[in-house]
């Protein structure tokens, strides 16, 4: 019994009490052919607390050897350039430096070339197809409670074929393209999600002749097999960035389980160069 008591005491001592460090969070996207952007500077916050913007810091952005100082804007957590500056050109190297109290945060990157013309072809089957919307293999976490729900229904798999021109050949490291299909009404199902492809992150071969292509798939559920495809709006988003952005974009899809890969030294978040293009299409 004495052993049990000693072990109990030791066990209690072993329990870990996590603590919050209040880390700096930065978000900066430097885009080609635009002036230095505003950036977000906050800290991690306890659950339920409002986003604590940082208002006291020394924030500088060096672009192509020129320093751009930042000051807090009216909006909480937003910082803007202190003085108007010229637009940023593709291929420019930049470095961000933030000093807030004892915290020092750094990140750098290169501004990618703008995305050229983008075309999107959408194809939809003539009829809705039967699909498993809720499968009994998606067992609850407590696997011994045999709640075995299942439900089949109907959906339209919508295929969007996106084409764009590759980046021009240059000495810049490889670029990556994140492609996203964002329908107005999102559909998600544990099993079907594995067979949808609303997003992709692709390496772009530079200097390639002819357009690059990516095909994505999303689903629109309907009540019956003979129900027509509901008209809806689709937003197609293309984001070009460096390997840092690719690592971030490939890891930001499960916020409850994991944090995205950060390129910020001394903090968290993302500070990188991006080229963004967005198309809106109405599917009928």
């Amino acid at each position: 019994m004495a052993i049990l008591l000693v072990a109990t005491a030791a066990l209690a001592c072993d329990t870990v009490q996590p603590r919050s460090d209040g880390a700096l969070v930065v978000q900066l996207f430097v885009r080609p052919d635009q002036p230095p952007p505003a950036l977000r500077l906050t800290r991690t916050a306890p659950f339920g607390a409002p986003d604590p913007g940082v208002r006291s810091a020394d924030v500088s952005l060096w672009i192509a050897g020129r320093r751009v100082r930042y000051r807090p804007a009216d909006s909480v957590g937003t910082w803007v350039p202190d003085t108007p500056t010229d637009t940023v050109r593709a291929g420019a190297y930049f470095r961000l430096e933030v000093v807030s109290g004892a915290d020092r945060l750094e990140a750098d990157g290169i501004v990618p070339p703008a995305i050229g013309p983008v075309s999107v072809d959408v194809s939809v089957p003539d009829h809705a197809v039967e699909a498993v919307l809720l499968d009994s293999l998606s067992l609850p976490l407590d696997s011994l409670r045999f709640e075995l729900p299942s439900r089949t229904g109907f959906l339209y798999p919508v295929v969007a074929r996106v084409r764009w021109n590759p980046p021009p050949a240059s000495s810049i490291p490889e670029w990556w393209m994140e492609t996203r299909l964002v329908p107005v009404r999102r559909f998600s199902s544990t099993l079907i999600d594995y067979f949808l492809r609303p997003e992709g992150v692709l390496r772009e071969p530079s200097g390639k002749d002819g357009p690059l292509e990516w095909s994505g798939v999303y689903a629109v559920p309907v009540a019956a097999a003979d129900e027509p495809l509901p008209p809806h709006e689709l937003r197609v988003v293309l984001v070009r960035g460096s390997g840092d952005w690719a690592a971030f974009a490939s890891s930001d899809g499960d916020p409850d389980r994991r944090e995205p890969v950060s390129n910020v030294r001394g903090g968290i978040g993302i500070a990188t160069g991006l080229a963004i293009d967005t198309l809106r299409i109405v599917i009928r």
Partner: peptide, 8 residues
């Protein structure tokens, strides 16, 4: 164990 939260 998560210790805090942040938004991007």
């Amino acid at each position: 164990v998560p210790v805090a939260r942040y938004f991007l």
